[in-house]
């Protein structure tokens, strides 16, 4: 804010605050719409291929989380210092999960060799 605090500056600042409130409300509506979309997506595609179901839901969840981070947590407005926190965290979190993928693949390979033929199997793990 302008340190002189002249009336003109105050009016401009007030308008900018109002525009931020409008942005928050638009993000809120977007989050609600995405939550409804997620709910309907999961409900209507319950029997769809796992990749389509999981992929679609994760994309929607990431968009929602991104909106919260960018606007409500003000990441969109922060300076470059934010990358010092976000990049290592994102890298380590990704490695933590991706490092488990080979294990998952081996387990699924093992399982594919011994299907449960004694019962009608449904909804097996993707």
């Amino acid at each position: 804010m302008d340190p002189t605090g002249t009336p003109t500056t105050v009016v401009v600042a007030h308008r900018e605050h109002s525009s931020h409130v409008k942005a928050y409300l638009r993000v809120f509506l977007a989050l609600l719409a995405l939550t409804v979309a997620e709910y309907l997506y999961a409900r209507l595609l319950t029997d769809a291929p796992a990749a389509l179901l999981i992929g679609g839901l994760l994309v929607l969840a990431v968009i929602k989380a991104g909106l919260v981070g960018l606007f409500f947590m003000h990441l969109l407005f922060e300076g470059r210092w934010k990358y010092l926190v976000l990049v290592p965290t994102t890298f380590l979190a990704s490695v933590t999960v991706l490092g488990l993928v080979p294990d998952l693949a081996y387990r699924q390979d093992d399982r594919a060799g011994a299907p449960p033929d004694h019962v009608a199997s449904a909804g097996e793990e993707p």
């Binding site: 294990d103 387990r107 699924q108 399982r111 299907p115 097996e124 793990e125």
Partner: peptide, 24 residues
């Protein structure tokens, strides 16, 4: 950031447990 790692650990464990759960 530490909280992100904490919840990533939980979710990662969940993914392993779920994917490794045998049929039946």
């Amino acid at each position: 950031a530490t909280e992100v790692m904490f919840f990533t650990g939980l979710i990662g464990s969940y993914v392993v447990l779920r994917a490794g759960s045998p049929p039946g």
